[in-house]
Design a protein around this nucleic acid. Structure first.
Lengths: 237, 237
DNA sequence: GGGAAGACTGAGTGGACAGTAGGTTGTTGC
DNA sequence: GCAACAACCTACTGTCCACTCAGTCTTCCC
């Protein structure tokens, strides 16, 4: 009778790995046996995901009751649970959905390398400063999920590990091209870049006066100066 | 009959501003009327604050039931509520307590200026890497409290504002001494420094492999190079 | 247009949890 | 040692909330 006796909602963001069809993914052809999701259902799922994204961002996962999400989506709470078998499944679906959007934007950066990637990252930060909802969702949930038993803990652990890995490769590519000095650890630069983005987001969310763009631009400027291959003076005090 | 009809626990961290004596603050002399806190009570309060600090760090404020805190402190839940009239009061007391410790460490940095302060900050980061509990408490609660209606929202807003302001002055002092270039905004540098500390903490808490010290050292190195008064070449591409 | 599956609703259930009431035990100043 | 108050405890209340059940309405393929 324990709470976690039901089917676990899968730590990987893509799908709750249950027998149900992947939510939000419209099946192109139901085939023969009239099984799947109706057009109305697809719409309802999108409404729920949108509502959940907003409320989780505003109040956090634990602070947002399912009934509030359902009301925001224009239905009752059991109605919502028809589409997502549990609150945890809903959370993972929201993360998968929003993560897809975030990754699409990051791909622009990851596909480049060196200096170009850094200025693409600056553009991303500028874009983030316009989309408070998405930023707040990930910041609030990342903070909440530092606790080991939070349902999104493993999601964020994996997400950060991957982001660091890909960003590290971006820096390495810059080194390979001779744009950056080789005596700094690309992994450390990657962690630093991600840290600045997150840290500035927290401050910005708490106080809109904080200028994320200026802060990140300063870091990029410092990196471009400090990592410049041509200026490698060896002054180690 | 609303939940918030009871006495609000004060947004400033120092005291719940209620008629009760300031918790955790042993009254030096009860005077005449036999009013105050017994030696046993002082001990109990400290136990509760320690337990609450640990559990709030582990599970977050909303995720940690009062009964669990009480059990950890060796008493029942109503026993705990004898010392702290509500969970919210307890949270503010924990924050006040731990913040005092954190400020004491920051004072070393703030009392200095320029380069010396930056290396003092490095020491602080190194110290943080040894005290996971305190770091996790503030990281988890800061994330949770981004939501506007979180009880600690205003606490963290004020805390960050003050930290930025004091760090800004540290940078300004460096400029006044001629250690740093004057063409960078000290407020932006301050936000950047705090952002890196927070961002690295999140990554480190999710994955201990992340090297906070190396990340912060890199930033300081970049700052020392980039802000060096003597090397002010005016290459603005 | 009939029927089967999907998309719901209203009315619960059970458990977790913050806070209360009122009584009992411990401590301390006189 | 004895008031008086602090420091508890047991038992309870009210509420919130995730989730269930049993049924009704809607969609959509044939």
């Amino acid at each position: 009778m324990s709470r976690s006796a039901r089917r676990a909602p899968a730590t990987t963001p893509q799908a709750p790995s249950s027998g149900r069809p992947d939510p939000g993914e419209k099946r192109p052809d139901p085939g023969g046996g009239r099984t799947g999701v109706s057009r109305r259902g697809v719409r309802a799922r999108l409404d729920i995901l949108r509502a959940a994204g907003g409320l989780f961002a505003e109040r956090g996962y634990r602070g947002a009751p399912l009934a509030a999400v359902a009301a925001e989506a224009g239905m009752t709470q059991p109605g919502l649970l028809h589409h997502f078998p549990s609150k945890e499944h809903l959370l993972m679906a929201v993360l998968a959905e929003r993560d897809r959007e975030a990754r699409r934007r990051m791909r622009v950066v990851w596909d480049m390398g060196g200096r170009a990637a850094l200025s693409a990252l600056e553009d991303l930060v500028a874009h983030n400063a316009e989309t408070r909802d998405l930023v707040q969702l990930f910041t609030v949930l990342a903070g909440e999920s530092v606790s080991a038993e939070h349902p999104a803990h493993e999601f964020f652990t994996a997400r950060y590990a991957q982001a660091r890995e890909r960003t590290r490769r971006v820096i390495e590519r810059g080194q390979d091209r001779g744009e950056f000095r080789r005596d700094v650890d690309p992994a450390v630069v990657a962690a630093l870049l991600l840290a600045v983005m997150d840290g500035l987001q927290i401050q910005w969310l708490l106080d809109e006066e904080v200028d994320m763009r200026a802060g990140f631009a300063l870091l990029v400027d410092l990196l471009l100066r400090g990592l410049d291959e041509t200026l490698s003076d060896a002054d180690e005090s």
